[in-house]
Amino acid sequence: METAMPELSRDPLQFPETIVSDRSMAENLTGNWRSLRPVIDAARCTGCLICWKFCPEACVKLTDKVPLIDLAYCKGCGICVRECPPKAMSQQGEAGL
């Protein structure tokens, strides 16, 4: 039996006692959950930061200019689009991009 399962023949005292989290979930890219992509119309953006403030993914980055949406994480919830005061944002289907 043990030859069929080599891991079991290891000294079990080499296995960890506990498993703690010391790495970041930022390693987990969630951009592929997205079906709708938020797009900012720079001409209409007033830099009000509402999109940054209301992002549940914390993936809108502050810049001196138009905010940057980190598409590696954006799940496409659309809150930023819905809340944008000057209506400078829209959603585009990922399939068409």
């Binding site: 079991l8 000294d11 079990p12 005292l13 296995f15 960890p16 006692e17 506990t18 498993i19």
Partner: peptide, 9 residues
């Protein structure tokens, strides 16, 4: 593996 370690301890 955690439980196996517990058994060993």
């Amino acid at each position: 593996r955690l439980r196996r370690r517990m058994a060993a301890d």
